[in-house]
Design a protein around this nucleic acid. Structure first.
Length: 260
DNA sequence: ATGCCGACAGGATGTCGA
């Protein structure tokens, strides 16, 4: 089963690109972030025409996550526990049955958190803590789990072109990096790092300052796998080439292949 | 230089993202 994640920066503005990539890459499951539309406005038809079922947790203008799946989506659950007051649509989970077992997948859109020293950064750390608490609970199920999405965290200096330029950014704060490591210490593994040792592999390039042309990117979109999912991991990659398309998202898809 | 680009809502330009 091929699983993917992509922050599309508006599913309506990116519909042509997303459907083109789905045809080309043919993932069985794709988690989307920043769909920037309500459930009603989600372009289900375009995805159903390609053979995908849709689970959507939308929001007007901002945020919004979805999961596309060729197989039926079961046990669909939006939001993280203990965050009923949180209006941001940033988490959606579902269970998908494959030929060789089931996998629980989540579409994750962690807060940006800038600027540091404000409520936004406090919210980011609180949100990531709630994610970790839920991720810990999921481990008790002892099943393959793939937490896929835009974590808005640069894991290490090897995952950014020039770490010095990000020292005061919420994406590279010690507290942000510790929050991501917390998930790894629980037992989740960074699928890309399991498969690739090379440095300077990015999933995001800013629209500004010629970042793409200069390859000044950051790796902030991650697939985190539970031990049972890690055991089934066969490969992982970043589809960098879509960033060169006309009217691209500033993020590119990350995918992994699992024996499920 | 806290901008440079792009999406959104709304109908000009401010907010947000990373």
């Amino acid at each position: 089963m091929k699983l993917a994640t992509w922050n599309v920066n508006s599913v309506k503005a990116r519909l042509e690109q997303v459907t083109a990539w789905l045809k080309e890459a043919a993932p069985d499951v794709c988690a989307l972030q920043e769909i920037k539309c309500t459930d009603d406005a989600f372009p289900r038809g375009a995805f159903e025409a390609l053979g995908y079922n849709c689970a959507v947790h939308g929001q007007k203008t901002y945020n919004g996550v979805a999961i596309l799946s060729r197989r039926p989506l079961e046990d669909v659950t939006p939001r993280l526990k203990g965050a009923d007051h949180d209006e941001h649509a940033r988490y959606l989970e579902a269970v998908i049955a494959g030929d060789k077992g089931t996998v629980r997948v989540a579409s994750v859109y962690a807060p940006n958190g800038n600027p540091i020293g404000t409520e936004k950064f406090v919210y980011k750390l609180g949100w990531l803590a709630r994610l970790a608490a839920h991720a810990r609970d999921l481990l008790a199920l002892e099943e393959p789990v793939a937490l896929m999405g835009d974590y808005n965290v640069i894991p290490t200096p090897d995952d950014v072109w020039d770490a010095r330029l990000w020292m005061n950014d919420a994406l590279f704060q010690p507290e942000s990096r510790a929050a991501l490591r917390r998930l790894e210490h629980l037992g989740y593994a960074d699928a890309f790092r399991l498969c690739h040792a090379e440095t300077n592999r990015y999933t995001f390039w800013d629209y500004q300052a010629g970042s793409w042309q200069k390859d000044h990117g950051i790796r902030i979109d991650h697939i985190l796998l539970s031990p049972q999912a890690t055991d089934r991991l066969k490969g992982c990659g970043i589809d960098k080439h879509v960033r060169a398309n006309e009217r691209p998202s500033d993020h590119v898809p990350v995918w992994c292949e699992m024996a499920v």
